[in-house]
């Protein structure tokens, strides 16, 4: 019974980041606070993908990241696959950083997150402007990237606390 409870608790806590990722993609919750501050918007999904892919890729999984991106596209009305590619780019940078770094700290994470955002936004902008008829504001994308980068440490601290209550298997 105790083992069952322990496993159940571990599964629920481990699933939480994934649930958040899906929920943010599927729900209409936006992280655009234009009513508070005109240019304030950030992409929480990218932070979640980057953090957990960097820390423990088994928490999210590339398949879920892909599907979350597809769902996000449907909800946001973007061409299907664009968010998936964007998230997978972040995931790729995170996987690369994980391969080449040994010590993990907030500052190394934050710095490498800049690269992830840069490539993710670049892919996003390039694909939309070249392959779709949608028009996007580069300034808005830049602000979004900037604030996402700016908010990363806060989310990093929260996830770090949360990670302590998770029962994680060692990443391979």
């Amino acid at each position: 019974m105790a083992i069952l409870y322990k496993n159940l608790r571990a599964n629920i806590t481990n699933l939480f980041p994934l649930i958040i990722l899906y929920y943010l993609s599927i729900s209409e919750i936006d992280t655009h606070f234009s009513n508070m501050f005109e240019i304030l918007s950030f992409n929480l999904q990218i932070i979640i993908v980057y953090y957990w892919m960097l820390r423990n890729s088994s928490v999210l999984g590339n398949g879920h990241v892909f599907f979350a991106g597809i769902i996000n596209d449907v909800v946001m009305g973007l061409p299907l696959g664009i968010s998936s590619i964007s998230y997978l780019t972040v995931s790729l940078v995170a996987s690369y950083v994980r391969q080449v770094t040994v010590n993990i700290s907030l500052f190394t994470d934050w710095f490498t997150f800049l690269l992830a955002i840069f490539f993710s936004s670049l892919v996003h902008v390039v694909l939309i402007s070249n392959f779709s008829s949608l028009q996007i504001s580069f300034i808005d994308v830049s602000y979004n990237a900037f604030f996402t980068f700016l908010f990363y440490p806060f989310i990093w601290i929260i996830f770090n606390f949360y990670k302590q209550i998770m029962v994680l298997k060692t990443d391979d």
Binding site: S57, G61, N62, G63, F66, G81, I85, L88, S91, D172
Partner: peptide, 15 residues
């Protein structure tokens, strides 16, 4: 990886 069913490159191509 042990718990990943798809590689990133595969998913990139699908996307």
């Amino acid at each position: 990886g042990a718990r990943q069913k798809f590689s990133l490159v595969f998913l990139f191509i699908v996307a």
